[in-house]
Amino acid sequence: MTELDLSFATDLLLQLVGVLPVTLGMSFLAMALALVLAIFFAIVQIFRIPGLNGFTQLYISFFRGTPLLVQLFLFYYGLPQMFPSMTAISAFQATILGLGLHFAAYMAELIRGAILGVDRSQMEAALSVGMDRLTAMRRIILPQAARIAVPGLMNSFIDLLKSTSLAFTLGVAEIMAKTQLEAASSFRFLESYLVLALVYWVVIMIMTWGQKYTERRLEEAY
């Protein structure tokens, strides 16, 4: 058994902190994309908007029914063969697109459940003061659904952030790829992956604090 090489570990840690913006950038952009799509799909399902409703069901079924890694490969390697214009897409963009589309499918169900969890009388009250259904959604229902959805959405976000590690398979220079490179050239696998695990863990712990704060703020009214 060999001793842990602390100076190697510190060195790698500093390098990873330098690359962290790539991981975080992909996470936040993909999450934003997923949220917008998920709210859209949830509303389509709740209002049973003709035409879109069937598409949404198919979408959710596909993205929940196939592995994320397969979807990423499909976007980055597969689709450009059919649509040459897509060859211009970078691995970074393909990851954001893939993660966003994938997690939107899960989050749509979560948000749909949260919207249905808001008391029916809230929609009736909004209609009674003369709002149309979309305004009622935006002003009254979604803010109340947010409170129900936040813990679940945070779970999705944590899952999404960790899934950015798959981007290394497309060649994105994020923290997983960086660690692999360093580990392979130094043969210090234990230190490398320990440090990497630690970085993910700390980032997610910070997110969780943020979640607690958000939940407290959303609880104020209740």
Binding site: S121, E124, S128
Partner: peptide, 15 residues
């Protein structure tokens, strides 16, 4: 053209 008062008040809980 109408306004409505509900049995269970139905105030907007987020307001």
């Amino acid at each position: 053209k109408t306004s409505f008062v509900f049995q269970n008040y139905a105030l907007f809980k987020n307001k």
